[in-house]
């Protein structure tokens, strides 16, 4: 009896997990399929295959302009977040002071705040100090949500490293700058790469902040996609989404090729 019921429960559990992944993957897979449709409208199943919606992306000028803005903002916010964030990690990850913990909590706190509030509040504040709706404003506001990802990932990697390498280098006569450049930096590089990847993807997919800084020259890709979706419902958005997913997968594979996903998940 008990053997029978155990089997029954395990089967039910496995079936539930399979259903769960059907639920998780279905909305994504249908978009990928629809992006290859030959129909002029959104329908599933699709009547035939075609690449015309991918061509359509490049026919709609705002998509291309916005994609360039999005890439520039994501790269800019990520590089600056590393420049500002990595030094902070060097101190905080090794500090035993009680206040270091508080500072860390504060540096990570933007992740817990509703992004729409950050975006709305920043628009008025940045306008007041003369930055207003501009490329600079986009970079600065994106940095607010990118910086915590870099800090969390790099600090996680650095805290797990033994102090002995740096100590040995220092004892052997290297000055702090050389210790950093030749010992610390190579050791924390996986953390910086992983943190940068999270940061890039966060910025690239951001809508609630970018929305408030929208203008002809500062529209990011999600903003243009949202306004397109509010007026049209055709497979171009599917093609664009598939392209974006492909980019994310390639980025992840490149990072995996160089550093290994294992190190990344440990870092995350």
């Amino acid at each position: 009896m008990s053997v029978f019921s155990r089997d029954w429960i395990n089967t039910a559990l496995a079936a539930f997990v399979v259903l769960f992944f059907v639920f998780m993957l279905a909305p994504i897979l249908v978009v990928i399929v629809v992006s290859f449709t030959s129909a002029g409208y959104v329908a599933f199943p699709i009547p035939g295959w075609s690449l015309k919606w991918f061509a359509n992306i490049f026919a709609y000028r705002p998509f291309i302009d916005a994609m360039i803005v999005s890439i520039e903002v994501a790269v800019g916010a990520t590089v600056l977040s590393c420049l500002v964030g990595v030094p902070a990690c060097l101190y905080l990850a090794r500090s035993r002071a009680a206040w270091a913990n508080t500072v860390m909590t504060f540096l990570l706190s933007p992740l817990s705040m509703p992004m729409i509030v950050i975006g709305f509040a920043s628009l008025f504040f940045l306008s007041r100090i003369g930055i207003g709706i501009s490329f600079t404003a986009l970079i600065v506001t994106h940095m607010v949500v990118c910086l915590p990802y870099v800090i969390r990932t790099v600090a996680g990697v650095y805290a797990g490293l033994p102090t002995s390498y740096e100590e040995s280098a220092a004892i052997l006569g290297a000055n702090p700058a050389r210790v950093f450049w030749h010992v610390t930096l190579p050791l924390i590089r996986p953390g910086i790469i992983a943190g940068s990847l999270f940061s890039f993807l966060t910025s690239f997919d951001n809508l609630p902040i970018s929305y408030f800084f929208a203008s002809a020259s500062t529209n990011t890709l999600p903003v243009v996609m949202l306004s397109y979706l509010e007026h049209q419902f055709d497979p171009t958005i599917a093609a664009l989404s598939t392209l974006q997913l492909l980019m994310a997968i390639i980025a992840l594979l490149v990072v995996d090729r160089i550093y290994g996903i294992d190190k990344m998940t440990v870092a995350g």
Partner: peptide
């Protein structure tokens, strides 16, 4: 988590 929020929302619309 690699897919954009727009893609996932669009997926529900397609379904």
């Amino acid at each position: 988590l690699l897919t954009s929020i727009i893609m996932r929302t669009f997926g529900w619309q397609v379904l």
